[in-house]
Amino acid sequence: MNRINRLFQNKKERVLSIYFTAGFPELEDTVPIMEAIEAAGADIIEIGVPYSDPIADGPTIQDSNMIALENGMSLKKLFAQLEGFRNKVNLPVVLMGYLNPIIQFGMEDFCKKCQELGIDGLILPDLPMGQYLEEFKELFEQYGLSNTFLISPQTSENRIREIDQHSNGFIYMVSSHSITGAKTGISEEQKVYFKRVQEMDLKNPRLIGFGISDAETFNTASAFGHGAIIGSAFINIVKKSKDLRTDIQQYIQSVIQ
């Protein structure tokens, strides 16, 4: 069984997924950051593959993408760094990236490589469901990769049901109409949306992301879903960090308490 499915079988609440950009702040930080995330007690690791034109991302992740690219990060480089990482890291690992670099690498080669290395799932924000079903679903399944779709407050009930039917890992609930970026607090309006989706009784677990940054927002998100995803706030921590292991430990502990 895929590590993601196993995780959600054993843990039904307060699941914490941490996103970071590969190659940021330094090119070779990838695996050390993964180890630190695991040691600190998070549940899923999301590795962002940097891209020149990340249209769903706010300034924090845009910057980390730019710097990672300047540092020389690429899919090839990332795969080289991930060689043998399963000897050090046990958590489920998901790659998050825009389609273009993956298509240049070759979708089948990409999937094959992910399987070889022990990657469990993919989040491709600019791959719409229709295109996934038509072009890529079979490949993902062949290589044992779970695929995660996003939904937002604007997503219709019918479409959420359809997405639920075609997801096999978890559903990524974008918390508001917005691009990524650490904000403060979760509004009543957002809670209404969380509750609406909660009551739909979907088959897939739901993680809430975008704007989750601390214990309070993590607790709120966890009350309405199976847990949350933190990205920009984590990027801000590693950006300032002089001692990745300690700072990551401290930050993640402060969130999950």
């Binding site: 891209y51 020149s52 690429s74 825009y98 389609l99 273009n100 240049q104 600019d126």
Partner: peptide
């Protein structure tokens, strides 16, 4: 250019071999 995806459509695109625009 080579085949790629930019601003929502698949088209010919000037990019590096790593798929950066």
């Amino acid at each position: 250019g080579t085949m790629g995806i930019l601003h929502g459509s698949k088209t010919l695109l000037m990019q590096t071999e790593d798929g950066q625009v």
